[in-house]
Design a protein around this nucleic acid. Structure first.
Length: 347
DNA sequence: AAGTTCTTATTAC
DNA sequence: CTAACGGTAATAAGAACTT
């Protein structure tokens, strides 16, 4: 979906149209500590981007419309759209007489999903399917999206990225090389700021240049990720579209309004985090094998402590006790004010 | 020496 | 003038530890 959260807000509040809209933390007159979740394209013209500190966004455009994240609403809309896409996909697969191949539908996040449309008989066929899906989503939800189509997940994703917003881009196998070569290395999924910086320090800026690096060199520099990169820059990606991912961990974390050393404040908030997680574990009938407590101190220095149980346990009272012990250790061995606390349960 | 656990780093959305 | 920086989840790597 295009600029999902902000686009939903525009739909719900037509008076926002034509104005820069930023969804995220409260800027508090430039003093806020959160980040931008999503913003519309007008806000992007001012240099605002997802993940940027909200204080920075406020500096760039103090007159933008700053909105809090209304997650319940976005979740509901996401559900509607995923259902549209899923049903659409299912009936297309039936029509094409796919024998179980094409029903795969993978939800990546609230606003992203993969459809395995390998039942299509041609790329034109695939493109038409994309057009129809775009139309259906817009007719039913009044929201635009961008669809990328390619021989594998990586290419499809990158095609969509380049076609945003309200776009549709098809990359046929014969076009993959010409599509990839001129792109920046950071356009490749899996190359983030750190990996990108390391490569840039070698004078590698474009995917075409990245192709010059031998597999061994990439593996030496980045391990398994390096091998993935080697394949991806060559348009190779065998990842399947997988319908259901198994949950491996659930966690919560919280940044305080201001750094604090007050144990009352810290433990009261930790209690809330624990209770929240306990509820989720119980309702989903999960068990807990490992707990990890995270503490971020003043200066953004982040540490974690974890404990693994002999066997996964349902005894959340025990889990709670251990979690509190770990947090206490942090406070005893580090005297700096605390910025963030978090807790994660590994299943 | 091998298997686990702990901790940190990186990425994505 | 520069830095400013959420929350959730996955995966990988290497160190530290048990067995």
């Amino acid at each position: 979906m295009d600029y999902f959260f902000a686009q939903i807000e525009e739909r719900e509040n037509p008076q926002f149209r034509g104005k820069p809209v930023v969804v995220g933390a409260d800027p508090k007159g430039g003093k806020g500590r959160g980040v931008v979740s999503t913003c519309n394209y007008l806000a992007r013209k001012y240099g605002i981007k997802s993940g940027m500190p909200i204080s920075r966004a406020y500096q760039l455009c103090p007159n933008a419309i700053f909105l809090p994240v209304n997650m319940e609403l976005y979740q509901k809309v996401s559900e509607n759209i995923m259902n549209i896409a899923k049903n659409f996909h299912y009936f297309r697969a039936l029509k094409h007489e796919s024998n179980g191949w094409g029903e795969k539908f993978e939800i990546v996040s609230l606003d992203e999903a993969y459809l395995d449309i390998s039942f299509c008989k041609s790329w034109e066929d695939a493109e038409n399917l994309g057009k129809k899906l775009k139309r259906e989503i817009f007719e039913k939800e009044r929201l635009t999206c961008t669809i990328g189509i390619g021989p594998n997940k990586t290419i499809a994703k990158m095609a969509a990225e380049k076609a945003k917003p309200n776009g549709l881009k098809v990359i046929k196998p014969s076009e993959v090389e010409n599509f990839l070569d001129p792109l920046d290395i950071e356009d490749l999924p899996g190359i983030g700021p750190k990996t990108g910086e390391k490569l840039r320090s070698l004078g590698i800026n474009k995917i075409k240049e990245l192709k010059m690096l031998p597999k061994e060199k990439l593996e030496e520099m980045f391990g398994k990720v390096g091998i993935k990169i080697y394949q991806r820059v060559r348009g190779i990606d065998e990842e399947e579209v997988v319908s259901e991912e198994i949950v491996k961990s659930i966690g919560r974390e919280l940044t305080f309004e201001r750094d604090t050393r007050d144990p009352e404040v810290i433990f009261a908030n930790f209690e809330e985090i624990i209770n929240d997680l306990k509820k989720e574990i119980e309702s989903k009938k999960l068990v807990c094998k490992t707990i990890t407590v995270v503490c971020r101190f003043s200066g953004f220095e982040t540490h974690s402590k974890s404990k693994t149980f002999k066997t996964a346990t349902k005894d959340l009272t025990l889990v709670e006790k251990e979690a509190k012990k770990l947090l206490l250790k942090f406070l005893l061995e580090n005297l700096k004010p605390v910025r963030l606390i978090g807790l994660r349960f590994r299943i």
